[in-house]
Lab assay of single mutants.
Amino acid sequence: DRIFMTRTEALEFLLKAHQTAVDKIGHPSHKQTPADHAAIEALDRLLLDVRARRVDQFQINASAAQIIVTD
């Protein structure tokens, strides 16, 4: 599946995904793992790359739809 978004929409989408990941590892019942921190770092890099126009398409994980940034 493909989803087309403007750059602004894609950045909002990534910010929400980032916040969800941060909230998940901050929850008291969740045991933090290196994979959790790696996922947040990957989202940080992706946010910067989309914002800087170095990336025009991405996929958060293998089961997610491919996001295509349109400007």
Rank of each mutant, 00 (worst) to 15 (best):
R2I: 13
I3D: 01
I3G: 01
I3T: 04
F4E: 04
F4Q: 04
F4Y: 14
M5R: 01
M5T: 00
T6E: 02
T6I: 02
T6C: 04
R7Q: 04
R7F: 09
L11I: 14
F13P: 00
F13R: 02
L14F: 01
L15T: 11
K16R: 13
K16W: 12
K16G: 05
A17W: 09
A17P: 00
A17T: 06
H18E: 01
Q19R: 12
T20W: 10
A21L: 15
V22I: 11
D23P: 02
D23G: 10
K24M: 10
K24A: 11
I25A: 08
I25S: 06
I25G: 05
H27I: 08
H27R: 12
P28H: 08
S29M: 09
S29C: 06
H30Y: 12
K31A: 11
K31D: 11
T33H: 08
A35V: 07
A35K: 08
D36C: 04
H37F: 14
A38C: 05
A38N: 06
A39P: 03
A39K: 07
I40S: 02
I40K: 04
E41N: 09
A42T: 12
A42S: 09
L43P: 00
D44H: 15
D44F: 15
R45S: 05
R45K: 13
R45V: 05
L48P: 01
D49F: 04
V50E: 00
A52I: 06
R53S: 11
R53I: 03
R54G: 03
V55R: 05
V55M: 04
D56Y: 15
D56H: 15
Q57V: 14
F58E: 00
Q59K: 11
Q59I: 08
Q59N: 05
N61G: 12
A62R: 08
A62N: 12
A62I: 09
A62S: 11
S63P: 05
S63H: 13
S63V: 11
S63K: 11
S63W: 11
A64H: 09
A64S: 14
A64W: 09
A65I: 13
Q66V: 15
I67M: 03
I67D: 00
I68V: 11
I68T: 07
V69H: 01
T70E: 09
T70R: 13
D71C: 05
